[in-house]
Structure formats: structure tokens, C-alpha cells
Nucleic acid binder design. Structure first.
Lengths: 119, 119
DNA sequence: GTCCTGTTTTGACATGCGTCTATCTTGACT
DNA sequence: AGTCAAGATAGACGCATGTCAAAACAGGAC
């Protein structure tokens, strides 16, 4: 219990849960763009694999886990990157991806539901 | 600060944050379907309007807030309904929508990031 | 019953998006 | 230089989706 005074930190310059205040058009467009990045099963699984890796992950270890072609994985990783959910770096032959937790925290806060005790 | 022992409740019979464990294909498909429902700006704003209403909301009070036709709003509300994010009931001439917070909590948990102290 | 209003459904259209193959880029190694 | 492998990009294809106008449906008022 308790949590009454837990303040969810305003990471990323945002934000208020949608149960507390309705989004305006601009906020909705911004949020929807990130949700769209997670709205594909392959991308959501990619995100979860990278996020749960506990650090960074080589593309060469990711691609074999999927049944689609390399370019398709590359395309999906690009979408995640352009949404600010992951970032990457080339080191030698290989490319490594890691999660950007700020964006996840932002979405999580947006969707958070106040606990009965917290109201 | 403090929050070290705050346990996010496993509402909806689910789930583990993606930073803790990668989703399998089935879990990713299930999650992606709900994110897809929120991946349209109009739908996300619809969701936020209904969720922040503090109860239920009449379609007749929702539609005027958007620049698209009535059938389009109806279509988007149907998508939200089929994703388990809202439910509705007709009372007389009007139809009322209200949020189903379990789905929001589920997504919020999925995207939640452990605080430094909580690790 | 008939009319009117609020909402949903239908059907059509244009655009968007996921996937592939083929090609290009980058870097390591001879 | 040349070659090889890992990823990214380009272009094409087909399916999914957001939108609207028109029609259908549900209730209330008359």
C-alpha cells in the first residue's frame, strides 16, 4: 500500500496520465506516433528483446530470432530508432542497439491509472 | 524518493515489463494489437477524453470536439471497444462510453521502467 | 402509425505500411 | 588494390486502414 505521495518523475518534459487530463491534438499526435512504432508485433518484440537485454544487443543476435528477412528487421529497427525508443552504434562489422528508457517511461506514465489509494 | 518496495499490481492476469523479460510471439501480437488501437491521433485523443471524463461520456459530447465526420468517430470508437479499452451502453437516444482501466494498466506495466532504487 | 434526431453500418476510394529482392555502404582482412 | 560479411537502403508489390457519403438502425415525440 501507500504510494500516496509517490511522484512519478516528469521525464522527457512530460507528462500527465490520460486519466487525469485529455490530450490536445498535438499531444495526441505525438503520443500516437510512438504507439504506432509499437503497434507491429515484430517491432514490439524487437523492443522487448532490446529492452530486456540489460544493456545493448547486436543485430546479428536479433535477426535469427525472427522469421522475416534481414532488411525487414532493419526497417523495423529504423522505425523504433526514429521514434526515440532505441539508439544504435556501429562498432566494426556489427551494429549494437540499446533502449532509450525515457520514451518508455513517458508512455507508461501516459497510460498509468491512479491506484484507489492514490485518489 | 523512496518507492523501493512499491509493487505494481498484476492487474488483468498479466504482465511482466518488457525491460524484465522479452515477449514471445503471442504476447507481442496481443500487445501490438492494443497499441495499434492507440496509434491513431484521433483514437488516442478519444481515449484520453473518455478516460479523463471521470466516468462516462456521451458520443454527442465527443463528436463536436473533432474535425472529422460522425461515422469516422463511430469507427474509431468501435476500434477502441474491440481492443477492450472502452465499453459503451445505449440509453435512450444517446450512447455513453467509459474507459476500461485494466487494459491501460496492463500496457502501462508492460512499458514500465524500474526506478534505479527499485533495482 | 409517421417524422425526426443520434449513432452505427455499409461500400467505396486513396493512402499508408509490411514485406520482399536487389543493390549499396561500411569495415575487416589478405 | 580485392574480397567477404553485416546492415542499411531503394524500389516494387499487395494488403490494411482512415476517410467520407449514403443508407440503415434505434428511440423518442407526435
Amino acid at each position: 500500500m501507500s504510494k500516496q505521495d509517490v511522484v512519478i518523475q516528469p521525464i522527457g518534459g512530460c507528462c500527465t496520465p490520460i486519466m487525469d487530463a485529455a490530450l490536445d491534438s498535438a499531444g495526441a499526435a505525438e503520443g500516437a506516433a510512438v504507439f504506432k512504432a509499437l503497434s507491429d508485433p515484430i517491432r514490439l518484440r524487437l523492443m522487448s528483446i532490446i529492452a530486456s537485454a540489460g544493456g545493448e544487443m547486436c543485430v546479428c543476435d536479433i535477426t535469427p530470432q525472427f522469421d522475416v528477412s534481414g532488411p525487414t528487421i532493419s526497417h523495423h529497427l529504423k522505425v523504433l530508432r526514429e521514434s526515440g525508443l532505441v539508439d544504435c552504434e556501429r562498432r566494426g562489422t556489427w551494429v549494437y542497439y540499446w533502449p532509450l528508457p525515457e520514451r518508455l517511461t513517458w508512455l507508461s506514465t501516459l497510460l498509468s491509472v491512479p491506484t484507489p489509494a492514490a485518489v
